[in-house]
C-alpha cells in the first residue's frame, strides 16, 4: 500500500435492495417490487492510522456499507477502494488487505476449539504452517484467550467469542480492520476491554473503520465520525468539531409529567431557544423528556420553566449539560438515536 494512500475511499456508494412483497403462501404479488436504498450515495475517506466511526441508528445502512467494503455485497453504483484496490474489480486483493468482524459471535465455528478455528482461518489466508502456529499463539495471548484456547467455542462467553472473531480478523496482519458494532451484546466491562483493544490496534498502526449506534462509544473511540441516517451521511467530522458545530450552545434537559401537547412549539417560540426535541421517557413513568438547545442557558432557564408551568406540567428533573453527540444527532435529524 502506497504511503500516501488513504485506507478507504468511498465515492457515491449506493446499495438498492429489492423487496418483493408476498401475498398468500406462495404467490408473488404482482408489481409490488419495492426498492429500498439502504445506502444512498455516500462519500467518505478513511485516513491511514485513524479510527473512523460510522454512527447511526438501526437500519441506517452501516452494515450494508461494511459488507460492500468487504466484498460480501456488490454495490448498486458508486465506487469504493480499500488499500488502493477496487472492491468490485480487485475483490481478492481487497479481501487480503482486510480483517472484518461482522456478527462477531457467529462468525466462528462453535463445534471447533478456539485454536482449531484460528488454524483453519490461517490456512485460508495462506499463512505457512510454522508461522501460523506462532501467530495464533501470539493472538490468543494478546486477546486473553490462551487459557481456554483448546475448549470448544460453544463454551465461550459472548466476550470471548467476540475476541476470537477479532483474532480471526487479525490473523493475516491486515493493515485495515472493519468492525461492525464490535461491542454490541457485551457487558460494560467486556465492552471497555474491547475498546482498549481497539485503541491498542490503532497504536500498532492499524486503520480501523467501525460502526456503532452508541454515541458515547463513538465519542470515546473515534478520531472522526460520519453520522449516517437513512443511507445518507448527514455530518462528518471529529467528535469535538461535531459538538462545536452546535455553537457556544448548551443543552437543557427537562423531564416533565404528562403529554407535552403543544409545549414544544411554545418553547421554540422563546428567545435564545434554538431547537427542541421531545420524546417519551424511557422509564415509562408517564413522563416526557425535552431537549432544549439554547445559546444561553442562564438567561433562558427562567422562561423555559415558566412555559412548562404555564402549560400545566410539573418539572420532575432538570439539567444543563454540555452538548453530546446525541444532541448533535437530534439537532440534525430531529429524532433520537435510541428511538
Amino acid at each position: 500500500m502506497n504511503e500516501r494512500q488513504d485506507a478507504v475511499v468511498v465515492v457515491g456508494l449506493r446499495k438498492v435492495f429489492e423487496r418483493r412483497a408476498r401475498r398468500g403462501l406462495l404467490r408473488r404479488a404482482q408489481g409490488e417490487v419495492k426498492t429500498l436504498s439502504a445506502v444512498d450515495g455516500i462519500d467518505f475517506l478513511v485516513k491511514r492510522g485513524e479510527i473512523f466511526g460510522l454512527l447511526g441508528p438501526n437500519g441506517a445502512g452501516k452494515t450494508t456499507t461494511i459488507k460492500m467494503l468487504c466484498t460480501l455485497l456488490s454495490p448498486t453504483s458508486g465506487t469504493a477502494r480499500v488499500a488502493g484496490h477496487d472492491v468490485v474489480r480487485e475483490a481478492a486483493k481487497v479481501r487480503s488487505s482486510l480483517g472484518t468482524v461482522l456478527t462477531g459471535e457467529r462468525s466462528v465455528y462453535w463445534k471447533l476449539t478456539g485454536r482449531e478455528n484460528l488454524r483453519y482461518y490461517a490456512a485460508l489466508y495462506r499463512i505457512p504452517r510454522r508461522k501460523a502456529r506462532e501467530r495464533i499463539a501470539e493472538l490468543l495471548e494478546r486477546l486473553e484467550l490462551a487459557g481456554r484456547a483448546d475448549e470448544l467455542v460453544e463454551k465461550y462467553s459472548s466476550g470471548m467469542k467476540q475476541r476470537l472473531a477479532l483474532a480471526r480478523a487479525l490473523l493475516p496482519s491486515p493493515p485495515i480492520l472493519l468492525l461492525d458494532e464490535p461491542t454490541v451484546g457485551l457487558d460494560p466491562q467486556a465492552a471497555r476491554n474491547l475498546r482498549q483493544t481497539i485503541f491498542d490496534l490503532k497504536a500498532g498502526g492499524k486503520t480501523v473503520l467501525l460502526t456503532t449506534h452508541y454515541m458515547a462509544e463513538a465519542d470515546e473511540l473515534c478520531d472522526r465520525i460520519a453520522i449516517i441516517d437513512q443511507g445518507r451521511i448527514i455530518a462528518l467530522d471529529s467528535p469535538a468539531a461535531l459538538k462545536e458545530g452546535l455553537g457556544a450552545k448548551e443543552v437543557v434537559r427537562l423531564e416533565i409529567q404528562g403529554e407535552p401537547n403543544g409545549l414544544g412549539d411554545a418553547l421554540r417560540a422563546l428567545a435564545l431557544v434554538e431547537s427542541v426535541a421531545v420524546r417519551p421517557s424511557v422509564n415509562g413513568a408517564g413522563t416526557c423528556e425535552l431537549q432544549v438547545i439554547t445559546s444561553n442557558s442562564r438567561r433562558s432557564i427562567g422562561p423555559i420553566i415558566e412555559s412548562v408551568r404555564a402549560a400545566g406540567h410539573e418539572v420532575v428533573h432538570f439539567q444543563v449539560v454540555q452538548p453530546t453527540l446525541e444532541d448533535v444527532f437530534i439537532r440534525l435529524t430531529g429524532k433520537s438515536l435510541r428511538d
Binding site: 486483493k93 479481501r95 487480503s96 482486510l98 459471535e105 462468525s107 466462528v108 482461518y121 485460508l124 489466508y125
Partner: peptide, 14 residues
C-alpha cells in the same frame, strides 16, 4: 444460517 459462511467468503479463497 450459522453465520460462518460470511467469514469464509471474506477470505481470499475462491
Amino acid at each position: 444460517d450459522s453465520g460462518v459462511l460470511e467469514s469464509n467468503w471474506m477470505t481470499p479463497v475462491p
